[in-house]
Simulated scan of single mutants.
Amino acid sequence: MKESYIREATRTTPYACVNFQAGKIELQGRSSPENTMEFYEPFIRAITMIGKLNKEKIEADFKLMYFNTSSARCIYLIVKQLKRLEDSGKNVVINWYAEEDDEDMLETGMDFQDIVDINFNIIMTKSTDEYV
């Protein structure tokens, strides 16, 4: 078994990482892939696997600057999977990053939190430089 699942960022896809040993999940950058499910399906499978392997805390960082509608659906599926892990007894921490002047990203995070009924740490940043 690999230690991590990693997809490097491109112009249209975010950096996506699941570190199985550390219990860490990260999605960072811009998301507007041509085939959204093709990009996100392996990432969601990796999140399912981390739940089977890691008995401790699972921490997910969403550091997105932009995502299109089809990506929003996949991000919703990711948050739902994290809720399933939490419901199964895992300690799940979700950190949702938004720039101070990006009300849309802030509201989207709050909407996901409410719809899925899972707590988010909303972290406001001054600029995207802080995401790196």
Rank of each mutant, 00 (worst) to 15 (best):
M1E: 05
K2W: 01
E3W: 00
Y5E: 05
Y5M: 10
I6V: 14
A9V: 03
A9M: 02
T10P: 12
T10H: 01
R11W: 00
T12D: 09
T12L: 12
T12Y: 08
T12S: 08
P14K: 04
P14M: 10
P14C: 07
A16P: 07
A16F: 02
C17A: 13
V18E: 05
N19E: 13
N19Q: 13
F20N: 11
F20W: 11
Q21C: 12
A22S: 15
A22V: 09
G23E: 11
K24Y: 15
I25Y: 01
E26Y: 07
E26Q: 15
E26S: 14
L27R: 03
L27Q: 05
G29A: 09
G29R: 04
P33G: 08
E34S: 12
N35Q: 11
T36P: 07
T36D: 02
T36W: 07
M37E: 12
M37V: 12
F39C: 07
Y40K: 04
Y40L: 03
P42Y: 02
P42G: 04
F43M: 12
F43I: 06
R45S: 00
A46N: 06
A46I: 05
A46L: 04
I47F: 01
I47K: 01
M49I: 11
M49Q: 14
I50V: 15
I50A: 04
G51P: 10
K52V: 07
N54R: 14
E59L: 13
E59N: 10
A60D: 14
D61G: 14
F62K: 04
F62P: 03
M65H: 12
Y66A: 08
Y66C: 09
F67I: 06
F67E: 09
F67C: 13
F67A: 06
T69F: 11
T69E: 15
S71R: 08
S71A: 11
S71V: 03
R73S: 13
C74R: 09
Y76W: 14
Y76M: 14
L77W: 13
I78H: 03
V79Q: 05
V79T: 11
Q81D: 11
L82F: 05
L82D: 06
R84C: 08
L85F: 06
L85P: 02
S88L: 06
N91L: 12
V92L: 08
V92M: 05
V92G: 03
V93W: 03
I94V: 14
N95I: 06
Y97G: 02
A98T: 06
A98L: 05
E99A: 05
E99P: 01
E100C: 04
D101M: 13
D101G: 05
D104Y: 08
E107H: 11
G109Q: 10
M110F: 11
F112A: 06
Q113H: 08
Q113Y: 10
D114S: 15
I115C: 10
I115R: 14
I115F: 14
D117H: 13
D117V: 07
I118E: 02
I118D: 02
N119K: 15
F120V: 04
M124S: 10
M124A: 05
T125S: 02
K126V: 00
K126W: 00
T128C: 02
D129L: 00
Y131L: 04
V132R: 09
V132I: 00
V132F: 00
